[in-house]
Design a protein around this nucleic acid. Structure first.
Lengths: 124, 124
DNA sequence: GATGTATATGAATATATGATCAGATATACT
DNA sequence: AGTATATCTGATCATATATTCATATACATC
């Protein structure tokens, strides 16, 4: 049973080969991680979630999250750079909105996973 | 037009109120962010993605990702703690698998978003 | 053009996080 | 019991990231 010993750090070469064959390509892994990272921060998640409902300005978001306008602006820059939000100017005010409404779908999908996990923990 | 001035840092009180009303509750925000954070790291994303195809042991994953077994073990502990993966023991070998196959759906959903973004950048 | 308001930005700091290393467990075999 | 393998764990270190502060820019009004 040679293939079950960890020679050269590989226990099951066949499994590793299969995994390699189906592995995501590096560029896509990077993109996916960046997208997920956006929603891994409570502030950003709430910003995007709020904007999915209505456009809001920096001041509004700062008030909602109860953080400085500068902090919000930094987060919005990140979102802008990633192409996830866009803005329109009205005087000195910049109104932000999501670039893709399907971001709501991503959040909803994740929420459904959590809800069911809760249920299974409660034995439902 | 008093409501358009930033008195008390709030430009549009109505918008803030509406956003507050529809805001995710803090506990859910935390849970969602933790879930997204899992996939915000290339190593973890690839681990989960690989396990969604077939169960694998620590050694296999280390070989696939080309990192130390200790690093993989640390990541797996996180995934275990979050209840995202489970394992079964066979002798000294621990075979890991995802606790919820719908995690694949989450990854697929995110991928579809990226693909369409690519398309729009290319003017398709 | 001077002032005020909303937002953006750069630098600095504080915290979070992933990898490494050394050592500890758990199981199997002799 | 003693050795070997696979995995785990704690501590440390290096890097990444979010916030803060000070300052800059853009637009509006006077």
């Amino acid at each position: 049973m040679g293939s079950d010993q960890c020679i050269g750090r590989i226990v099951h070469q066949d499994k590793v080969d299969l995994a390699r064959a189906h592995d995501l390509d590096p560029a896509q892994v990077e993109q996916l991680c960046q997208l997920f990272k956006v929603f891994s921060e409570p502030g950003r998640l709430r910003i995007v979630h709020a904007l999915l409902q209505q456009e809001m300005c920096v001041c509004d978001l700062a008030a909602l999250l109860d953080v400085s306008e500068s902090a919000v602006s930094h987060q919005l820059r990140l979102l802008r750079t990633m192409g996830l939000v866009v803005n329109r100017r009205e005087g000195t005010v910049l109104y932000y909105r999501p670039a893709d409404r399907r971001l709501l779908g991503l959040i909803r999908f994740a929420r459904s996973l959590l809800e069911d996990e809760q249920d299974s923990l409660n034995g439902k």
